[in-house]
């Protein structure tokens, strides 16, 4: 059997897809599995949630009357706005990397790196933001009961705040990493395995 000739002879035998078959495929409710689409969707969720939480922080700034929690919430808002721009840019970058158009290996590498860098930078940014958010939330509820001056004069309250920040920061960081692993990890691993498969051939 001549491999090339036998393969070519299959061109005439191939069952062609009819227009009706293709139309059915365009709207078919098949289970979608493409990891790139899944990852892009998850990046879009990050944009959505960042936008969703922003009005809450704006509301908190106007709700509290003391300067310290207001300042803390303004810092959180600014961080969220920076995060929003960051996620939008990363999402656009992810969408622009079309695995079908260019050098597959290079595009796949760039795509994986873009997602990983997004998660890494988000987690690092969070490390700065969690203590501020913890302090903001702490004063937000505490100032319902006493004034800021009273709170700042009480060492027990300051020690409680410090302990809270020490506990919440690593805990929130661990939770964020766990969430990212849970939502992105499986699909990232699929792409990394695909990349490994390609590289193992070299």
């Amino acid at each position: 059997m001549k491999i090339e000739e036998t393969w070519k002879s299959m061109d005439n035998e191939a069952e062609s897809l009819s227009g009706a078959d293709i139309r059915a495929g365009l709207s078919a409710k098949v289970k979608r599995r493409d990891p790139v689409q899944k990852l892009n969707k998850r990046l879009a969720w990050k944009i959505f949630f960042t936008i969703l939480f922003l009005p809450l922080y704006f509301g908190a700034v106007f709700y509290v009357e003391s300067w310290l929690p207001q300042l803390l919430f303004i810092i959180i808002i600014v961080a969220h706005l920076i995060g929003l721009v960051f996620f939008i840019r990363r999402y656009q970058r992810a969408k622009s990397l079309q695995l079908g158009e260019n050098d597959s290996r290079q595009t796949l590498k760039l795509y994986i790196e873009n997602i990983k860098a997004t998660l890494r930078q988000e987690e690092l940014g969070g490390l700065i933001l969690y203590p501020i958010a913890a302090a903001g939330g702490f004063f937000f509820s505490l100032l319902e009961k006493m004034s800021l001056e009273e709170a700042l004069a009480d060492n027990r309250i300051l020690i409680t705040l410090l302990i809270l920040m020490i506990i919440l920061t690593p805990l929130s960081h661990w939770l964020a990493r766990w969430m990212n692993r849970k939502t992105f990890g499986k699909y990232l691993k699929e792409l990394e395995e695909r990349l490994r498969l390609i590289e193992s051939e070299d």
Binding site: L17, D21, I22, A24, G25, L26, V30, R32, R33
Partner: peptide, 8 residues
């Protein structure tokens, strides 16, 4: 299934 998925 795979054909439909590729078309989609």
């Amino acid at each position: 299934d795979l054909r439909q998925e590729v078309v989609y």
